[in-house]
Design a protein around this nucleic acid. Structure first.
Length: 343
DNA sequence: AAATCGGGGCT
DNA sequence: AGCCCAGATTT
């Protein structure tokens, strides 16, 4: 049997019931695909439901303030996805008369839509003959064909895309694409795949050569940097605090946070007080919230973070009511503090 | 070609 | 501690 037919057959019997599998509306499929970029189904699903509930149409999303979009995205990470999603929605409504593009060529022009997402939307919504290559596809193909080219090398990206194009089912690309991804997620898993019960076990090169656990090959990532964050938590007249929006480059663009003092290493009370006095232009007397730094781990950085409480009656720029803290989109690190600390 | 961008779950 | 996740974009 053809590889694509084996996948289609497996998919018909094993596919999960998922909220975005009941529609071919490109707006809904687009939402699901962007939410699921580098994100597991279990983590993304509640966000898909929130977004489709809050913004049923692309017009609803386009007309929302960015603040509201980011707040709904809070906790999901990779916040450029939310900003690009919002920008693309506004573009489609304003410049394309609200009509969603239907071809790979047009889809990939939109912000936040790359090769994978353009192929996914074109095939799932319109059954276009476009091959998706996500993490699942890399794993399935590298194992089944015994390919040891690194999947994140230039050669690997090209090689696996070509292979995926050759393999795809031209009659039912829609289900084939979803099928090979689902197969990777359920059957051909990264760790401890169930090869004994696999429908492809008789023709899998990696299984034959006992290479399953060693594939796919991936070039190792760069090392993690340590950063030292000191957040100043002003408590002004028992009812106000201060938030600033992160702008420019780097992490958490567009999200809000307390006044931040970043230093080269963990600092003493005196040093942080000195910096806080300069930053906020008031005479700062601090006490630390927790003596041991909280380590917030991101993909490329570990943030060693301390929160310092500053009680004062003086007014400071960018004051916000403490009761309104919950309205602002904030990083998980800040959300966890707000939840834990009793203002 | 390499670095950057989050957060969570599993081993 | 390291790896992976329905990747895209910037440097």
């Amino acid at each position: 049997m053809l590889f694509s037919h084996k996948i289609l057959h497996w998919y018909a019997q094993n596919k999960r019931t998922l909220p975005w599998r009941t529609t071919r509306n490109p707006y809904n499929i687009w939402l699901s695909e962007v939410i699921l970029q580098q994100t597991k189904v279990a983590q993304g699903t509640p966000y898909y439901l929130k977004f489709t509930d809050t913004f049923p149409t692309i017009q609803d999303l386009a007309s929302a303030p960015q603040e509201k979009v980011l707040k709904l995205w809070q906790g999901l990470g990779y916040y450029s996805r939310a900003r690009n999603l919002h920008e693309a929605a506004k573009f489609i409504v304003s410049n394309l008369d609200g009509k969603f593009p239907e071809s790979y060529k047009e889809l990939i022009k939109l912000k936040g839509i790359g090769d994978y997402t353009a192929s996914a939307i074109a095939s799932i919504c319109f059954n276009a003959q476009e091959a998706v290559v996500d993490g699942n596809v890399y794993r399935v193909l590298s194992r089944y064909f015994g390919v040891d080219i690194p999947i994140n090398s230039t050669e690997g990206v090209k090689y696996f895309k070509k292979l995926a194009v050759e393999l795809l089912d031209k009659e039912n690309t829609r289900d084939y694409n979803q099928g090979i991804m689902e197969f990777g997620a359920i059957q051909c898993t990264p760790k401890n795949p169930d090869c004994i019960s696999c429908p492809l076990k008789n023709s899998c090169v990696a299984l034959e050569k006992n290479m399953v656990s060693g594939l796919p090959i991936k070039i190792k990532k760069t090392k993690i940097k340590k950063r030292y964050f000191n957040y100043i938590i002003p408590i002004i007249k028992d009812s106000f605090t201060v938030l600033n929006q992160r702008t420019g480059k780097g992490i958490w663009q567009g999200l809000w946070q307390f006044p931040l003092i970043e230093l080269a290493k963990e600092a003493s009370l005196n040093e942080v007080e000195k910096e806080a006095t300069a930053l906020l232009n008031i005479n700062a007397s601090l006490h630390v919230y927790k003596d041991v730094a909280i380590v917030h781990k991101l993909s490329h950085q570990h943030l060693y973070t301390k929160f310092w409480i500053l009680e004062t009656t003086q007014e400071i720029d960018n004051m916000v009511k403490i009761e309104e803290l919950e309205k602002y989109p904030v990083p998980v690190l800040i959300a966890d503090f707000i939840k834990t600390y009793k203002f």
